[in-house]
Amino acid sequence: MLGLHGIKKSNEGLRAVYQDRTVTAVDLATINDIWEVMRKSVTIAASTKSTEFAKEKSEETAKTIKRAEEIWARFMATELTTVEEQLAQEKLRLHAAYVTAVNKIFAMTIAGDFDGAAKNLKDEAELLFYRLHETIYSMISLQGKVAAEEYESAVNDYSSIFMIMIATISSSVLLACALGYILLRGIYPPESNPVRRLMDLAA
């Protein structure tokens, strides 16, 4: 039971490295790519000075934001470290601020206020984007560090359990040999040993 429990625990540790770190890193990178697409959309909308184009990009961006939020929900369902929780809170704050700024730019562009949209893009949205992008990138970089720590822990757990199993098996074998010897001694006491009796007769 000890061996099976140890192997199960080790497997769970390695599975956590994959699910909570490798998959998470890919999801976070995807979110960063999505924000980059959204940034390009709002930049083009503010520069083309077309209300129809701005409306079209605004609708596309709403769908893009929803997709990013769905991926983010998967990340939040994983087991987070203290640092990850702190970065996640900062990301959520920047996320909300950036989405508000983007929606404001689209609204201004659709209303025909192209100069105001361009100014808001430069003075507010761009600054928020870079801070949001940097925060998510920090979370991606953190995955490698945490994955290495969790993998090392899983390997150490497996090694410890393996050594305990070897020691237990060895002890069991030695105990079985000792009990067998005692039982044989009880069945065949020294004085009834056939070889010993032949040697006594020869003497």
Rank of each mutant, 00 (worst) to 15 (best):
R39I: 13
L28M: 07
Q89E: 12
S160G: 06
Y151W: 02
A203Q: 11
W72Y: 02
M165H: 12
L2R: 08
T109A: 13
V23E: 04
I34L: 09
S10P: 02
M1T: 12
I71Q: 03
E59Y: 08
T64G: 06
E90W: 01
A88T: 03
M199Y: 09
G180D: 10
L179S: 11
E69Q: 13
Y158R: 09
A29L: 09
L4I: 13
S159E: 15
S41W: 07
M1A: 14
A46T: 00
L174T: 11
I187M: 11
A16V: 07
L201V: 11
A97W: 00
K122W: 06
V173Y: 08
L132M: 00
I71G: 06
I161N: 09
R15A: 15
A73E: 15
E70I: 02
R67V: 10
T64A: 10
R185C: 11
L198H: 09
D113V: 02
E124K: 04
I105E: 01
R39E: 07
M38A: 13
E69P: 01
V99G: 01
A117H: 05
A147L: 02
D27H: 05
S58I: 08
A29W: 00
L127C: 08
L142R: 12
H5C: 14
K49Y: 02
R185H: 07
E59I: 04
L175M: 07
L94D: 01
G13K: 00
L201F: 14
V37A: 08
L4D: 14
E52V: 06
T24F: 00
V99I: 12
E52D: 11
Y151H: 15
A176N: 09
F162C: 11
A118C: 05
A54M: 04
M163R: 14
E84Q: 04
V102S: 00
L142G: 10
Y181W: 13
N156R: 13
Y98P: 06
E12V: 10
I169L: 07
Y130A: 03
R21V: 07
R197D: 07
P190M: 01
D200F: 09
E152C: 05
R131S: 07
M165W: 07
I34K: 00
E52I: 11
N11G: 15
L175D: 04
L4E: 11
Q89V: 06
E85C: 04
Q143Y: 01
E134F: 10
K66C: 08
N156K: 11
G3P: 12
K57E: 08
A107E: 08
L92A: 14
S172H: 12
A73I: 00
S58E: 14
A62D: 06
G6W: 00
T109L: 06
S47F: 07
Y18S: 13
D113A: 09
V155H: 01
I136L: 03
A125H: 03
V173T: 03
L2D: 14
S10F: 02
I31M: 03
M139A: 03
M163K: 15
S138P: 06
S171Y: 15
A154F: 00
T43M: 05
F53V: 07
E56A: 12
S141R: 06
A148V: 08
G6C: 06
E124F: 04
R197P: 09
T61C: 04
L28K: 07
I34V: 09
L80W: 01
I105K: 02
H5Y: 08
K119I: 09
A25E: 03
